[in-house]
Write a protein that binds this DNA or RNA. Structure first.
Lengths: 134, 134
DNA sequence: CTTGACTCTGAAGTTAGCTTTAGGGTTTAT
DNA sequence: ATAAACCCTAAAGCTAACTTCAGAGTCAAG
């Protein structure tokens, strides 16, 4: 199949598919006489794999590593794959915690503000951001 | 004070301070005869403000907007400031939810895997990422 | 046979928030 | 008086993941 169909099937943009090839995530496919890329359905599986991996937080580099495992599964172990998953889970947790901290801080600051239509000359949010103790 | 001292006091890098000036977050200060930037302590307050705002999730552009309010507080209202805070709180919540969804999905996939030292030929994580139903 | 949809390439552009580089003056302490 | 530490500029580089552009060839339908 040609790149347009592959893109439609995988839900990616045509340019993104070419980009993934350039970045080494998928192999360069054979070409038609006119020079068009000619993909097998295997590539569609790979793109779906990438999309899923990205959807749970893996970067493109990590997708490339995962994909390398995927294409030669017999040379790798479940422990290895699960290790990568758990590492990513930990990262996600850390990111959530960072966001949570920001949220808590900002919520406390925001809740303390009257939010009224009066001038912000005495706005406690601005004071807090400046670093003033209340 | 010169830029090095300002940087030390604010906890930012010297280059970052110059960058903030270029980006319009802080005004260009007067110069010494030798061409050195000569800051007042007011700038330090502004930089502290920026640091705090960044720490709770505001982008530099948003910091610039907040700072514009900060420097002419009497022309703005508490409602306006609180509105921006609550908008940011909502964004933070959405980001956390997105991370949570990724985490839940990946955790379910990861937990189902044995994680053993056997070959990944039948690894359920890889199957799930490929899109296979179990 | 022409029109519109599709494909190709390589390079440059995008966003955010800095950091680094290169090359050159100034201040301060000893 | 000299060396370390500091300051200046403009421009380029960095990361991530694409997107856009310019210019040109190919395919399918009517």
């Amino acid at each position: 199949m040609r790149i347009g169909e592959l893109a439609r099937e995988s839900g990616l943009a045509v340019e993104t598919v070419r980009y993934y090839e350039k970045e080494g995530l998928i192999a360069a496919p054979p070409r038609s006489p006119a020079g068009y890329r000619d993909y097998s359905s295997l590539t569609l599986h790979y793109l779906n794999f990438i999309r899923s991996a990205k959807a749970v937080g893996f970067s493109l580099k990590e997708c490339r590593d995962l994909l390398a495992i995927f294409v030669s599964r017999d040379a790798h172990t479940c422990a290895e794959v699960k290790g990568l998953s758990e590492e990513k889970l930990t990262q996600l947790e850390q990111q959530m915690e960072a966001l949570q901290r920001m949220h808590q801080t900002l919520k406390a600051i925001s809740d303390a503000c009257c939010g009224g239509d009066e001038s912000a000359v005495n706005c406690s949010i601005l004071d807090q951001l400046e670093g003033k103790k209340p």
